[in-house]
């Protein structure tokens, strides 16, 4: 069951521009429940760690076998035996624990991990996630732990830009890229707004709930997207 707080009304932040990636990371960090066990995906999701409030009690999981992971390592703290899932050297916090890969993924599949934050190519209104493969003939497929996280974490949060470089929306009626997981995403955090999808959306299947917007109104976003958006 989702442990994410749900606002009662949609807030439209039209007095400002869209969020940059650091502001977006801060919005995600704001919504992560205190004390949650959280896995942050490779790339931009790792920025979320920088915005978790002091004393949040959030414990970071990295799928290569560690709980209570600390910040990136620098200087003399760099240790080749201690990296995150992106192979970036990291540190351990007091109370950290190490474990092997089968246990690490049991934490996901077994329903022990509260939240994961993943990037995405596309998310469907149904909560389907596409984030591992473009399907291009010359692309080398690489899935890593994405499929296990997608179906394992209690809440799957996606962090992405709302629009692709060609201007098309990445929040879509149905994914055209190969799927990572079916109906697994709870919430989509983007530069232009925060959306509830799948079983966490209010009302009819296929309709996306808009929790808040940045730099555009719900109506303005609706005009650029093929999915049906509904304010709270």
């Amino acid at each position: 069951m989702s442990a994410l707080a749900v606002p009662t009304t949609t807030t439209e932040h039209t007095d400002r521009g869209p969020l940059d990636k650091h502001e977006l990371a801060a919005v995600i960090a704001r919504d992560i429940p205190a004390g949650a066990y959280v896995n942050l995906g490779i790339g931009q999701p790792t920025l979320v760690a920088d915005h978790l409030p002091q004393g949040s009690g959030v414990v970071l999981h990295t799928e290569n076998g560690m709980l209570n992971m600390g910040p990136a390592a620098t200087g003399d703290d760099i240790d080749p035996d201690l990296t995150n899932a992106g192979k970036v050297p990291v540190t351990e916090l007091p109370g950290a624990a190490y474990f092997h890969h089968a246990d690490s993924f049991a934490m996901m599949r077994g329903g022990h991990l509260d939240v994961c934050v993943l990037g995405a190519y596309q998310v469907a209104a149904s909560g389907d996630l596409a984030n591992w493969h473009t399907g291009a003939p010359d692309a080398i497929p690489a899935v890593g732990g994405a499929m296990d996280l997608a179906i394992g974490a209690k809440d799957v949060l996606v962090m992405m830009t709302l629009f692709a470089k060609d201007g098309s929306s990445k929040l879509v009626p149905a994914c055209t890229y190969p799927l990572t997981g079916v109906g697994c995403v709870s919430r989509v955090y983007t530069d232009f707004g925060v959306f509830a999808v799948g079983s966490s959306a209010e009302g009819d299947p296929g309709v996306v709930s808009v929790l808040e917007t940045y730099g555009a109104s719900v109506d303005e976003l609706s005009a650029r997207m093929d999915v049906e958006l509904r304010p709270l």
């Binding site: 799928e63 690490s104 599949r109 890593g144």
Partner: peptide, 25 residues
């Protein structure tokens, strides 16, 4: 998938003939 890679080897080492897994459905 990374967790299946680990669990499929775990199964081999534990004498499990096969297992049903939700990953990748």
């Amino acid at each position: 998938p990374q967790g299946n890679l680990a669990e499929r080897m775990r199964a081999a080492g534990a004498g499990i003939g096969a297992f049903f897994c939700p990953t990748g459905v």
